[in-house]
Design a protein around this nucleic acid. Structure first.
Lengths: 113, 113
DNA sequence: AGCAATGGTTCCCTTTGGATAGTAAGGGCC
DNA sequence: GGCCCTTACTATCCAAAGGGAACCATTGCT
């Protein structure tokens, strides 16, 4: 039962939902939509993210199989992040959400906060 | 420009996105899908939420026009929460995300965190 | 008087998020 | 040789959000 009730504390679906329902996760995944990106690129694209939090976000995505992290043994270092098949799948509902937001931004008050 | 770049710090769309991309917000909105619900009902449905956090979540949704809060002057008190038209709109992409999660839970490792 | 029901609020502690500074390693420059 | 440049982080410290437990106000019931 709890296996199918996303509101249940122990439902695995809820854990996945909470992984995606995060301030930076959604932005990070969609930022990888068009192919591999380097750490610094993402850092600049996701305005306001600190390196620590970006690292944590990407690591969490990597641990959950949404993102592949490739370290190139060069100097200066080059690390590339790209979506896995699972990550590309998650892109779809995330992009859907994003496009809804885009279409309805103006329905929100000026102090969206 | 920043008006259309969800990654920009000042983009209103990003603020809306961050409102929805929250651990409890998505669950709360979908929990209201089938009509008005009372505080206690939501509290029981969203397993693990503390009254303080539930209050804050609902207030934020109310402030942003997604939820309507109605206090009935009775004893014991009765407070009902229901989605506004805007909230019902947000339901759609959220439900989409939820159904994707449902379909792909098993693609995630056993330690989804 | 005491208890139950409801929708919170208050206090305190833990977890998470965020800002800033520092580190390692090699290459180019002088 | 000594110095700086770049990159992708870690380390440290502090603020904000999340979470647990207790308490409150009101009225009816027993």
């Amino acid at each position: 039962m709890s296996r199918h009730d996303i509101y249940a504390l122990l439902c695995p679906g809820r854990a996945v939902f909470e992984l995606l329902a995060n301030k930076w996760t959604g932005l990070a995944v969609t930022a990888l939509a068009d192919g591999p990106r380097r750490f610094g690129e993402l850092r600049r694209k996701l305005e306001g993210v600190s390196p620590k939090v970006l690292t944590a976000t990407l690591r969490r995505l990597e641990d959950n199989g949404l993102v592949l992290r490739t370290v190139h043994a060069e100097v200066p270092p080059r690390v590339e992040y790209e979506l896995t098949a699972l990550g590309r799948g998650a892109l779809e509902p995330l992009a859907h959400l994003r496009s809804w937001v885009r279409a309805h931004v103006d329905d929100f008050g000026p102090a969206v906060r």
